[in-house]
Nucleic acid binder design. Structure first.
Lengths: 130, 130
DNA sequence: GTTGTTTGTATACATACAATGTACAAATGT
DNA sequence: ACATTTGTACATTGTATGTATACAAACAAC
């Protein structure tokens, strides 16, 4: 069980740990690296591996379950479910635009060059369409 | 004074208000919509406009000042400063990659199509290089 | 030069959130 | 039956967020 893809969490980030876990796992789920039927590590296992309390992992799993990605059951663990894409809320695109713009502004402020940012965008885009 | 570009903040977001203000303003600063020498609205003005306490705005201004964007002084207000791009930290690119990937995963999970995401990426990229 | 006004700043407080500790409940194997 | 392995529930503790209120500095008016 539990093909554990390495999750990277930063305990000093201002983003709370449980949301970092959610974001990491959701990436893997969306990209298909975690297929339906897969069993995730138990909350205690993953908590130990990441150095946080298992309740923090349980909170993350519950969030993903509420998004429809996981099915949680005692004694059996967290299993990835089938899930069809929902209808996007009407402001989804506008929000995405804003968040993307702010993310780019943030890294430009950090000193990343426009060139390397553009390169990354292109790379991701190519990866998407593939 | 204070050509007030419309900031959009969502009091129900899980992102705290002062950081929403920071993110919005940083976008405008990076993109040059707020030129050095510009005076921002006073903390009380902007607080009133956004419906939050002025100390919340003051916190945001202080963060931007600590990033080098603003110069704060009593009685004169918040003035946009000259600022040269710093040396990016060594993990900046990797972090950007991860954040971008997670942002895309998030909106795909919300139901946005790969096509519209790709289109947005392309648009932003073109806008960057322009 | 005193006074009032306009700014940002400092501190104290209430509330909410994040992470943990501990006890529990359910499912399964022996 | 019993023990074990899972997720769950709830209380506790520390930290973050947002507000209220008082303060300090700079400048203008007189």
């Amino acid at each position: 069980m539990s093909a554990p893809p390495k999750l990277v969490i930063d305990p000093h980030s201002n983003v709370p740990v449980y949301r970092q876990v959610v974001d990491n796992l959701r990436s893997l789920l969306v990209e298909g690296a975690l297929q339906p039927g897969t069993t995730l590590p138990t909350v205690r296992e993953l908590g130990l591996e990441l150095g946080v309390h298992f309740n923090t992992i349980a909170e993350a799993y519950r969030l993903l379950a509420s998004e429809g990605w996981l099915d949680l059951k005692r004694r059996r663990g967290a299993v990835v479910t089938e899930r069809s894409a929902p209808q996007p809320p009407p402001d989804a695109l506008a929000n995405f635009r804003r968040n993307l713009r702010q993310l780019i502004a943030q890294v430009r402020a950090e000193g990343l060059s426009v060139g390397s940012i553009a390169h990354e965008l292109d790379r991701l885009n190519r990866e998407l369409s593939a």
